[in-house]
Design a protein around this nucleic acid. Sequence first.
DNA 1: GGGGACTATTGGTCAGACCATACTTCCACC
DNA 2: GGTGGAAGTATGGTCTGACCAATAGTCCCC
Lengths: 256, 256
Amino acid sequence: MNRPGPGSAAKAAPRDADDMFNPVSLARASQAIVDQIRLLIQDGHLTAGERLPSERDLCERFGVSRVTVREALRILEAGGLVTVKVGARGGAYITSPSSDRIGRGIEDYLTMSPTITPAEVTEARLILELGIVPVVCERATEEDIAGLLDLCDEADAAIAAGTYTMEMSAEFHIRVARLAHNGAIEMLLGPFHRPMLTSMKAAREAAPAMGALGVKEHRKFVLAVRDNDVPKATALMKAHLERTAARVQQRTRTSG
Amino acid sequence: MNRPGPGSAAKAAPRDADDMFNPVSLARASQAIVDQIRLLIQDGHLTAGERLPSERDLCERFGVSRVTVREALRILEAGGLVTVKVGARGGAYITSPSSDRIGRGIEDYLTMSPTITPAEVTEARLILELGIVPVVCERATEEDIAGLLDLCDEADAAIAAGTYTMEMSAEFHIRVARLAHNGAIEMLLGPFHRPMLTSMKAAREAAPAMGALGVKEHRKFVLAVRDNDVPKATALMKAHLERTAARVQQRTRTSG
DNA sequence: GGGGACTATTGGTCAGACCATACTTCCACC
DNA sequence: GGTGGAAGTATGGTCTGACCAATAGTCCCC
């Protein structure tokens, strides 16, 4: 492998006037590789399940060292575009981003972006959870309803035993979201629950009786869904979420 | 630095019974570092703007080589948790994930997940865009309305000149989303437009007159928002989006 | 014919080195 | 004394060559 100077490998290497003007390559070689592979995936030249050449192969093809290739793979892996397996027949396999991975990204954003207030997060969640109610009413099956009611029963038992947690409440909402039978919605809504949880845990300890009320509201909502009563179900969910939101807001003193 | 064998640096190194049972460390040292730093950020020990030690410092602290530290930084960078600057006073700075970065992740997911059909994406978009209408009506200022009307004028002119593109349509919807004045919603809704675009571009060429109708609908929607007529604005947007969705569905032959 | 050892492939890591970049300091010159 | 450029320094970006660890396939022996 020719070596035009380690640090300038990512550069244009303006050897002469012939290839002097076309380059404008990125600052980082690894990023350039990521962009290339990313494009190949988007254009369908690489599809899920396919296997990239080995790292040592990619080195030669891209004309960079293994370190650089590996950094590119780490970036792609972090984005959920490939998964890397070790051992013979191992390597980087093209894969579809998973809901979990994207969800964690959204979660990070909701949690740590300074420009987003808890009030905004709550509002966004409200819009999503209310928006799916018609879809949920339309698509919920008998088993779905029964499953939700079982969950309510468990929650009641937990409250009686004093073991009810916010996780169980979140579980209910996640299950409801799943009834929309829409992966995109499930992916968008999932990340909202974990951050909520942390900010609500303390609140619940201050007012443990609220949990019982929450479960009551959950149950009434399920019954409305069973009756296919969209307006009632929407109103119930709205009241439930807004009451919850008020508690969060009370604690976190948001500016919104 | 002691060197217990390169490949086993990430392992538990079960030297004797004393520390034999606590480990269960990750397969990859770089991932372990990512998890550690991630936790520090979440727990507030590292806040946005702070600077991590230099790569060479981190090597010593974690007891790994620079390659490993760098891979960890690439992963964190891909997740938008740090940005790396070069030169003196450079290094890894803790940063909040940007809307763009997360948006691209969502976009990847919507585009490439095999479990998500175009119909689901369309439905999710419908729920979001309809859900924000009340908020938009409530918060839109005079300038906001004027800006949207200007955009409609430009679109009309472009149609007359035959230069109207789907990008301009998407721009309208993005601007509307921004009127919700909610960063979370903007972040969630943004990624929906680019994938739509690609699947709609061809459709428009098949029916160029549709563009004019779309702009008409845009304008009527803006006027409804100006009048604070939530039901009317919602109905208009619903009809507009469903007509668009029908076109997409017609082309992509989704199973949903 | 089946099970275990061997081998090849491939990712994971290390060590040390060099270059490119950007900030800091300081000195010479005006 | 102020200013602009030159040298110094800290830091990321990359390269090289090597070894270890994990895994799948193969082959040999029982």
